[in-house]
Computed example of a mutant assay.
Amino acid sequence: MLSTVLCFAAVSLLDVWSYWPFALLVVVIAPFYEWVAHKYTLHLPLKQEAGFIRRYQIRLHHGHHAEPERRDLQFAPASAIFLMFVQFYLSYALVAWLFGVNGWEAAFVPCLASLVYYLAYEWIHLAHHTSSYNPLTSWGRNMREAHMRHHFHNENFNWGITNGLGDKVLGTWKDIDDVPRSPTAKSIAGYQH
């Protein structure tokens, strides 16, 4: 939340609101970024050797599949969020530069949009894992059901958290009858808690 406030302040102080169209990048890439990050980063094969990287992978996501009800494993560690936003900022700055504008300043606009999106992402993910919460819309119910299928039926499908566009376009949106139950849904990459 503090990052969002600081980024909002940077956009205001630099007076770069005129670069608002760059915020549309977030809307376009978010469903696919979610899909790619979940599939190729969070489900990365677990390091076999004990050490920092293995512990970090377990904290980042493998532990969440093993114990999806644990609140402390439902949110990404601050270091992962920091690294993700450094990546975003540099990528947005490059895109803005390619459009012939001051990328170092313009990048704050899509970064702000990304921070707002990320806050929504975390709340939606939390709602998916809160049994007492009843989604208010059919979209919310569909996303929650898809996420529960990912956790408890087959971890190789339904990668989206906030929406299923990436899954639908890339062919991984599956109903429970579409794919067999996976014996490793709670032990991705062989992790056992």
Results as ranks from 00 to 15, higher is better:
68 P>I: 14
68 P>Q: 15
38 H>D: 09
67 E>P: 01
56 Y>G: 06
68 P>C: 15
45 P>N: 15
54 R>G: 09
52 F>I: 11
33 Y>N: 01
60 L>I: 09
38 H>W: 05
50 A>Q: 12
45 P>I: 13
33 Y>W: 05
62 H>W: 07
45 P>M: 11
53 I>W: 07
38 H>K: 08
58 I>V: 15
50 A>E: 15
34 E>T: 00
67 E>T: 03
65 H>V: 05
45 P>F: 10
64 H>D: 02
48 Q>C: 10
42 L>I: 08
43 H>N: 09
40 Y>R: 04
37 A>K: 00
52 F>W: 07
54 R>D: 10
65 H>K: 04
54 R>W: 11
38 H>V: 10
36 V>P: 00
47 K>G: 02
58 I>W: 08
37 A>D: 06
42 L>S: 01
65 H>M: 08
61 H>L: 10
43 H>E: 15
56 Y>R: 02
55 R>K: 09
52 F>R: 05
63 G>R: 11
61 H>W: 00
46 L>V: 13
42 L>P: 00
67 E>Q: 06
53 I>F: 15
49 E>K: 11
64 H>A: 11
49 E>S: 08
62 H>D: 10
66 A>K: 04
56 Y>Q: 08
38 H>Q: 02
52 F>P: 06
42 L>C: 09
64 H>R: 10
33 Y>H: 06
48 Q>K: 15
42 L>F: 08
69 E>I: 02
56 Y>D: 01
63 G>D: 15
66 A>S: 13
63 G>A: 12
55 R>F: 04
40 Y>N: 03
68 P>A: 14
47 K>C: 13
44 L>Q: 07
64 H>F: 07
47 K>E: 12
44 L>S: 01
57 Q>R: 08
50 A>C: 07
65 H>F: 04
34 E>S: 01
61 H>Q: 05
63 G>I: 08
46 L>Q: 01
36 V>Y: 01
64 H>V: 08
58 I>Y: 10
41 T>K: 03
41 T>Y: 06
41 T>P: 02
50 A>M: 10
61 H>N: 14
41 T>D: 04
51 G>L: 13
57 Q>E: 14
42 L>M: 08
64 H>E: 12
66 A>I: 04
54 R>I: 13
43 H>A: 03
40 Y>V: 02
49 E>F: 12
50 A>K: 13
41 T>H: 03
59 R>C: 05
68 P>G: 15
34 E>P: 00
35 W>F: 15
58 I>K: 11
62 H>S: 12
50 A>V: 08
48 Q>D: 14
36 V>I: 05
46 L>G: 03
49 E>G: 07
53 I>A: 15
60 L>C: 09
49 E>T: 07
47 K>L: 14
44 L>M: 13
51 G>Q: 12
47 K>S: 14
63 G>Q: 12
62 H>Y: 05
40 Y>K: 06
48 Q>Y: 11
60 L>Y: 04
49 E>H: 09
39 K>N: 03
35 W>M: 03
50 A>I: 07
61 H>P: 02
55 R>H: 06
69 E>L: 04
35 W>G: 00
